[in-house]
Simulated assay, not measured.
Amino acid sequence: MSDCETMDIGILLFLSGILAGAMNAVAGGGSFVSFPVLLSVGISPVTANASNTVALLPGSLAGAWQYREYAGNLQGISLTKMILLTLGGGGVGALLLLYTTASQFTKFIPWLLLVSSLTFAFGKQLGHYIRKTRQISRTTVMTGQFILGIYGGYFGGAVGIMMMAVWNIFGMTDIKQINANKNLLVAAANAVAAVLFSLPVKLPGMKQLY
């Protein structure tokens, strides 16, 4: 690869990173930009996914700081508890990724994107139906957040959109608080995943990503 090609790839990655970070801070979905770009330059799917998680962490942290005054409890559950659930889930998801082969992950990608897209598209309607037909307990909300943490640590693509859609199902409608909590909890999932991805020492069977 020539120096010119290397520079072009660097510029492409830099610009896609800026765009993805801005999208995540405002609404989410930045991985729909950055992840395909990483794949297009020849990075393996698992490494591209891990790199995407690490690269977007600063944007999530910046967004969490910018909207910090709006962050608050969710359906009576303390924000601290939600952060701990997300950290735990993010750690589980990151460990799962470290034991996933590239061929397995490639098969999972379309399904992960489909789930996130359907949740975003129909989350509001599903939320109205669920709230009319049954009472959503605190345990359900906390379990849902832990699962979102796993998704964020494992894949991370559109996890912010997933969180907003699921919280809407649980009856959270304040858009400022939703966005503030989303940035903070996405940052939590990304942070614990980034730490695990970067550890120099891996357990037996784990892959070295970098």
Rank of each mutant, 00 (worst) to 15 (best):
P204Q: 00
Q145G: 05
K124P: 03
F120A: 11
G156V: 11
Q145I: 07
Q177W: 01
I161C: 07
R134S: 13
A188D: 00
A187H: 03
L196G: 02
A189G: 03
G205W: 00
L184S: 01
F170Q: 00
H128Y: 13
G157V: 15
M172A: 07
F120M: 15
S117V: 11
I178P: 05
T133H: 14
F170K: 02
F197L: 01
G149Q: 09
V192F: 01
F122C: 11
G156D: 10
M163I: 14
T139F: 10
N183F: 02
G123I: 13
L184K: 05
A158I: 13
G156A: 13
T119L: 13
I136W: 01
I169M: 03
G123T: 12
Q177S: 06
V186F: 00
K207V: 14
I161Q: 12
W167A: 04
N168L: 12
G171I: 10
M162D: 10
M142R: 09
G153K: 14
P200M: 01
N179I: 09
Q145K: 06
M164T: 13
M142T: 12
I109A: 04
A193H: 03
Q135P: 10
V201Q: 04
I130R: 03
V195A: 05
A188N: 00
A187N: 04
F146G: 14
A158P: 09
G153A: 07
L112F: 15
K202D: 10
Y151I: 14
I169H: 00
F155V: 10
L114A: 13
T119E: 05
G153C: 12
G160W: 07
G157M: 15
V195N: 04
G157H: 11
T119C: 10
K124G: 08
